Computed example of a mutant assay.
Amino acid sequence: MLKTGPGWERAYEPLEFAQKHGLTLKQAETVIHTNGPSKYKCDLAAPIFLKALKDLAKNRENRSPG
């Protein structure tokens, strides 16, 4: 992930962010990349991301075969 431009020097390290929010490293990188360097925005996005993953898994379980 390229960390260039304003604000990236204060961005979360993916491992720190992953541990804080119970994400995998890949998931943490996705949230950080999508929301930019703002720790505030990333902290807001993490629970929404986790809920979306949970909803997706639930929808896949409920999908009828065919």
Rank of each mutant, 00 (worst) to 15 (best):
M1Q: 10
M1G: 01
M1E: 05
M1S: 02
M1I: 12
L2V: 13
K3C: 03
K3W: 13
K3S: 03
T4L: 15
T4V: 11
T4I: 14
T4E: 10
G5A: 04
G7C: 02
G7M: 02
G7E: 00
W8H: 05
W8K: 13
E9R: 15
E9L: 12
E9F: 08
R10Q: 14
A11M: 06
A11Q: 09
A11S: 05
Y12H: 04
E13F: 08
E13K: 15
E13H: 11
E13T: 07
P14T: 00
P14M: 01
P14H: 02
L15K: 15
L15Y: 08
E16Q: 06
F17D: 00
F17V: 01
A18M: 09
A18S: 05
Q19Y: 13
Q19T: 09
Q19H: 14
K20Q: 08
K20Y: 11
H21R: 15
H21C: 04
G22H: 09
L23S: 03
L23H: 05
T24E: 01
T24P: 01
T24C: 05
T24F: 01
T24K: 15
T24M: 04
L25R: 15
L25S: 04
K26G: 08
K26S: 10
Q27Y: 02
Q27R: 13
A28S: 04
T30W: 05
T30Q: 07
T30R: 08
T30N: 05
T30M: 07
V31A: 05
I32H: 03
I32N: 01
I32Y: 03
H33K: 12
H33Y: 15
H33V: 12
T34P: 10
T34M: 12
G36E: 01
G36R: 06
G36T: 02
G36Y: 04
G36A: 01
P37F: 00
S38H: 08
S38D: 00
S38P: 05
K39W: 06
K39I: 12
K39F: 06
Y40I: 12
Y40G: 13
Y40Q: 13
Y40L: 12
Y40R: 14
K41Q: 10
C42W: 02
C42K: 06
C42H: 04
C42E: 02
C42R: 05
D43H: 03
D43K: 12
D43Q: 06
D43R: 11
L44F: 08
L44A: 14
A45S: 07
A45D: 04
A46W: 02
A46D: 00
A46I: 06
A46R: 10
P47G: 03
I48W: 01
I48C: 13
F49C: 09
L50F: 02
L50Q: 03
L50H: 09
L50D: 00
L50I: 08
K51G: 06
K51A: 07
K51Y: 06
K51W: 05
K51R: 14
K51S: 06
L53K: 13
K54S: 11
K54P: 03
D55R: 15
D55Q: 11
A57F: 08
A57S: 08
A57E: 11
A57Q: 09
K58E: 10
N59H: 12
R60V: 11
R60W: 11
R60K: 06
E61M: 11
R63N: 08
R63Q: 09
S64H: 14
P65Y: 14
G66V: 07
